[in-house]
Nucleic acid binder design. Structure first.
Lengths: 147, 147
DNA sequence: CGGAATCCTATCGGATACTG
DNA sequence: CAGTATCCGATAGGATTCCG
């Protein structure tokens, strides 16, 4: 189901403002005009990459350079080992992270963002910007627990 | 815990590329340098606004102009009434949506994005762009169920 | 039409304990 | 050090039913 350029506009007044009136296409390609949350819709793909608790904080820490498991735990003390390794595994599966194991004793592991992983940066920045905009226009309305 | 400009860099070579090396600050204000997913961190605020199944599709439909409950259901046929009203309620509570009830018979309700709601647009666009970038660099790695 | 109430299942994420 | 295994409580969200 398309939402742009079809169906008589509900309240078109002047094209100057009102509520943007889709002046610029929201979804450049067909994959964005989905009727349901399909996993191959770009929006869902991006959302999948950042959703889940701690899912933004782990990449954020790694934006500064490679880190080991325990280093990540130090930086995010309240993140349990279970969830951390879960997040790391997801990031790896999605090709956002590369792992390097150094044998010997003690064992050393090194997590590095890949090019794909670094591609999250603009999204994190936009999330930050949007969040600030929301906080600025009404501090009370942002909260609400998120898994 | 800060992640920028502290602790000896792990692999600083030349500042040209490598992995961006935080050349530009990721988190302009202090609220972004959190140790845990705090609800008042801008990133969390924005994420809260778009996370949850159908959470982006409902605003997307409304970007084209106000719609009623059933109109939304028509456009998103697989979205149950329960979840739709849940999403709408959340959007209202966060001040992203305004509601107008027209009495008479049958009852008519009209959901309109507020200014705050329209502030989500750049984020949706960025989500789309990031998702496309991920799909472009490796189609297989995007998927994975998202609640 | 526009919902709210109830039920039910799957998954998420935290705590704890154990392993190579 | 770098994880895995197990248990467990809390939601999320779909289906169905009912109401003003």
């Amino acid at each position: 189901m398309r939402h742009a350029a079809s169906e008589p506009p509900v309240d078109e007044g002047h094209p100057t403002e009102t509520h943007a009136a889709d002046g610029q296409e929201l979804t450049p390609t067909a994959r964005g005009r989905t009727v349901r949350p399909e996993p191959d819709c770009p929006v869902e793909v991006a959302l999948t990459a950042v959703s889940g608790r701690w899912a933004t904080l782990v990449p954020r820490e790694l934006m500064g350079g490679p880190l080991g498991f325990s280093e990540l735990r130090e930086r995010l003390p309240e993140l349990s080992a279970k969830v951390l390794s879960q997040r790391l595994r997801e990031l790896c599966e999605r090709g956002l992270l590369s792992v390097e194991r150094r044998r010997g004793f003690p064992v050393r592991t090194c997590y590095t963002l890949t090019g794909r992983g670094r591609a999250l940066r603009p999204l994190l920045i936009e999330l930050y910007a949007t969040g600030e905009a929301l906080l600025a226009t009404g501090p009370a309305a942002g909260a609400s627990p998120r898994g």
